[in-house]
Amino acid sequence: MAALSWLEWNPTSFNINNPWTWSPGSDKKVCFVTTGATAPFTALIESVLKPSSIEALRNQGYTHLLIQYGTAKDVFSSCAGAAQCNTRKDSRREALTIDGIDFFPEGLKTQFKLVQQSKGLVISHAGSGSILEALRYQVPLLVVPNTGLLDNHQEELAVAMERSNYLVRGDVKDLAPAIQKSEDFKDKMTQFPPITSGGHRETKSFADIMDETMGFLD
């Protein structure tokens, strides 16, 4: 029955037309946060909406913050309300627009595209599916492992991916340093998936491995 609940998503609950669309020449800069579909990572939602994280985002020129909160709508609403109030007090700068979405059964294509076009940032939980999807869009990715999970390989994957320079790893307790780091990271991130030629050792694509096993000659 759990699988059914996300099919009941109502398209009107999130209005895609405004302000979450991209028009050429816009000075919009979007940060998109995804917390995973199965078990929402509420600590990440709280952490992103903390004053220090919001401050770091505004310092880097972000104008829009979109959070995919999954089933943790109440956590999002209470934190987002407070954060929005704080940013409005600061009249010297343009307010940071904060919005949330629950879950999209058809994937997060639109959101990743928006980040890509606005040269923004994706902040994600460390699930391999989300990491792979975000990296296909060549967007800078800040991954926050869920330390609350026992016997989890998320941290291992995040460490290995950071070592290969595919992403920036952040600590859920304090995201501000990682947000700052992500700005420089944009220029030196490694392309993913890696190009399967050159490099320090022989690489093969999966299609090569299949053909080889079958004995196909090119």
Binding site: S128, L132, H153, Q154, E156, L157, V159, A160, F206, I209, M210, T213, M214
Partner: peptide, 14 residues
């Protein structure tokens, strides 16, 4: 029936 197993990308050390 040749078989190929690919370990998940999420498996880094075990």
């Amino acid at each position: 029936c040749k078989t190929v197993y690919v370990e998940s990308f999420a498996r880094v050390r075990t």
